Computed example of a mutant assay.
Amino acid sequence: MGWFKRNKDGITTSTKDKKETPEGLWHKCPKCKVIHSVDDHAKHMWVCSNCGHHDRINAAEYFTFLFDDGKFTELNPKMTSGDPLKFEDTKKYTDRYAASVKKTGLNDAVTTGYGKLNDQDIVIACMNFNFIGGSMGSVVGEKIARAIDHSIKYRKPFIMISKSGGARMMEAAFSLMQMAKTSAKLALLGKEGIPYVSLLTDPTTGGVTASFAMLGDINISEPGALIGFAGPRVVKETIGKDLPEGFQTAEFLLEHGFLDFISERKHLKKKIGSFLGMVSPENETEAVATK
């Protein structure tokens, strides 16, 4: 008759026997919704093995596979931003800045460093989108400018990896001036005949697109990246017309001549290395090298 008796306790598991699934073990692709383990996702360079969606990653991740053995020397790691405008809105800029530093472990939205890529000396500046949307403030502009100075001084090719929501509004004109400063530094780099590779990743927008991101000797992108100045809604309202399908994607820009090529993340190092192997200052004649 035990089958017909209700067990008051039911089927239970004691609290001490319950096992919680640790957080951070799985990654769900935002495009196809397929779930992968975090370790497998990292092995695929943070690209979905099912649909090929390229997740947003920051300097720490890019540096692991672009620099040989992931080894590099960071430039100006302690540079931090001030608050010259005493900007206050719903939250003080200083409070938001401090919260971003604490959350990300970074001092600002760009990391710069030098090392080797396929045994070639190289300088890389990479933006960190998780730091206030990769916005360009005075520190971002200054660190990029100093990285370019390092490239010029030691005649090393320069790679810029852009990923940004645009200018940092909390610094107003101080932010906007970084467009002119970085562009001027790149003009000096070009005058010295030192290669500049611009890699545009998702998303690259605003003042970053309007300045250093589109000034490369070669402009490349990862698949599906959003690249533009103003957002699609603003553009549509301005011109009063519907936008073409795929507007502001990397593929659309490639078709219209704004990019030289699109490369999957797993091929980036090889393709950049091949380009630099052809144009590197190391291949200059001795007369130019001793200028």
Rank of each mutant, 00 (worst) to 15 (best):
T205K: 08
T112G: 09
I161Q: 02
I122E: 07
G277A: 06
M79D: 11
I262F: 14
K271Q: 12
V110K: 03
L268R: 03
K18C: 09
P77T: 10
M160E: 08
E61C: 03
K8Y: 02
E74G: 03
G206P: 01
A225G: 10
S14G: 00
P232M: 07
G224H: 09
F131E: 03
D68N: 08
F258T: 07
A98R: 14
E23T: 13
C48I: 06
N128T: 01
P203A: 01
V235W: 11
Y93Q: 05
N283A: 04
H267M: 11
D40N: 08
M179A: 11
L189V: 07
F129P: 06
K91M: 15
L106Y: 14
G24R: 06
R96C: 12
L276D: 00
G193M: 11
I272M: 15
S183G: 12
S164A: 12
I124K: 01
R56T: 11
F67N: 02
G52A: 02
M127H: 09
L176R: 05
H27S: 13
T111H: 08
R146P: 03
T209V: 07
I122D: 10
G216N: 03
F72D: 02
L200P: 00
S211F: 03
G105L: 08
T290H: 01
N219I: 12
L215A: 14
A59M: 03
E237D: 15
D55E: 12
F258N: 11
E286P: 04
P281I: 06
G216A: 08
V197R: 01
A109H: 10
A230M: 15
K92H: 14
A230W: 13
I148M: 06
K86S: 09
R146L: 07
K191E: 12
D9A: 15
K102E: 14
E20Y: 14
D108F: 04
W3K: 14
R155I: 09
Y93L: 08
T290Q: 00
N118Q: 13
H150R: 09
P157H: 01
V38M: 14
N50L: 00
C51F: 03
S183F: 05
P157A: 02
G190T: 00
H53G: 02
M160G: 13
F258D: 14
E282K: 15
Y97V: 00
G141R: 01
T112H: 06
P30R: 07
K185N: 00
M136E: 06
S263I: 15
T80S: 08
K78D: 15
T73K: 09
P84H: 10
T13A: 00
F252A: 04
K16V: 13
L66A: 02
V197T: 03
G277M: 04
I239T: 12
T94K: 00
M127T: 04
K236C: 10
N118V: 00
M1Y: 10
I152P: 00
A210C: 06
M127Q: 14
S175V: 04
L106R: 12
S280H: 13
P244G: 08
V34I: 04
S274I: 10
